[in-house]
């Protein structure tokens, strides 16, 4: 430290102001420093209070309110989204219900058509089979009559061939007897 002081003393000798030791302790220039310091402090104080601090304070307040508003808006939008989802789900459920109803209706109408068609087909089948039966019976009757006829003729012919006199009535009775048998 002593050497430093010496150095300073040497330096002081070379320069104008200091009275020795630390230049800070040279009180002759203190009024000057204090005056200019006060000027600087007043300048900073005025700049801060007139311009900078109100401006920054306003910006910060504005930002805070913007953030608050945005959060509120976001909350609102979220609520809206939830409502929309609810509505969507309701609509979806309703659509499903409607679809089920339409499917059921379609099924029922198809079933009805089917039933009608079946009934109609059944009726037709019944009619046709009745007709067929009738014709079969007719054919059978005809065939039976023909057989009777043939049998009578044959019997007559056989009787004639055997040299008998065919009694028409007796032959018919006999054939009828046989046919029953």
């Amino acid at each position: 430290m002593a050497t430093v002081v010496d150095d300073v003393a040497d330096a002081a000798a070379g320069h104008a102001a200091p009275a020795g030791g630390m230049p800070q302790l040279d009180v002759t220039n203190w009024p000057n420093q204090i005056f200019w310091l006060l000027v600087a402090l007043v300048a900073i104080y005025l700049v801060l209070t007139r311009v900078a601090l109100p401006r920054i304070g306003a910006v910060l307040a504005e930002r805070r309110s913007t953030i608050t508003n945005d959060l509120l808006a976001a909350e609102e939008l979220k609520q809206k989204a939830l409502d929309a989802e609810k509505a969507y789900n309701a609509a979806l459920a309703k659509a499903r219900e409607d679809a089920a109803k339409i499917v059921a209706e379609a099924k029922a109408s198809i079933q009805a058509d089917l039933d009608a068609a079946t009934a109609k087909a059944d009726a037709e089948i019944a009619a046709r089979s009745a007709e067929s039966e009738r014709r079969i019976a007719e054919i059978r009757d005809n065939a039976l009559a023909s057989v009777t006829e043939v049998a009578k003729d044959t019997t007559g012919a056989l009787v004639a061939a055997l040299g008998g006199q065919a009694d028409q009535a007796a032959v018919e009775t006999a054939v009828a007897e046989r046919m029953k048998g």
């Binding site: 150095d7 330096a11 320069h15 104008a16 630390m22 230049p23 002759t28 220039n29 000057n32 005056f35």
Partner: peptide
Amino acid sequence: HPMDQFIVRPLFGDGPIQWYTVT
């Protein structure tokens, strides 16, 4: 001269330092 940096000097000219001198 580590303490030289702390010496107050007039910025213009080389006169005595008054309270209003620009240093």
